[in-house]
């Protein structure tokens, strides 16, 4: 292990703070996003992963935006 950060390692590797839901990565409108599932056909955008600064101006990809999809 060669991680070295300013944050105490106990805090970095503390697994106790578990998230209520498991966030997942997906492609939405051709962009990579991290989403938080709400139910079987809805999810909320948590984070957009893009190097294009203009994507961050797109309200459809903004964090908090609810997206709809049909499970396969």
């Amino acid at each position: 292990m060669i991680i070295y950060t300013a944050i105490p390692l106990e805090q970095v590797f503390n697994e106790h703070e578990t998230l209520e839901t498991e966030n997942f990565e997906m492609d939405y409108q051709g962009k990579r996003i991290i989403a938080e599932p709400i139910n079987h056909h809805q999810a909320r955008v948590v984070q957009l992963i893009s190097s294009n600064p203009n994507d961050y101006l797109n309200p459809n990809l903004a964090p908090g935006k609810i997206i709809y999809f049909r499970p396969e």
Binding site: S51, N52, P53, N54, L57, N58, P59, A62
Partner: peptide
């Protein structure tokens, strides 16, 4: 939202 413009610089 802010109107979109094309950017030649990526971040």
């Amino acid at each position: 939202n802010i109107p979109q413009v094309d950017s030649n610089i990526h971040c």
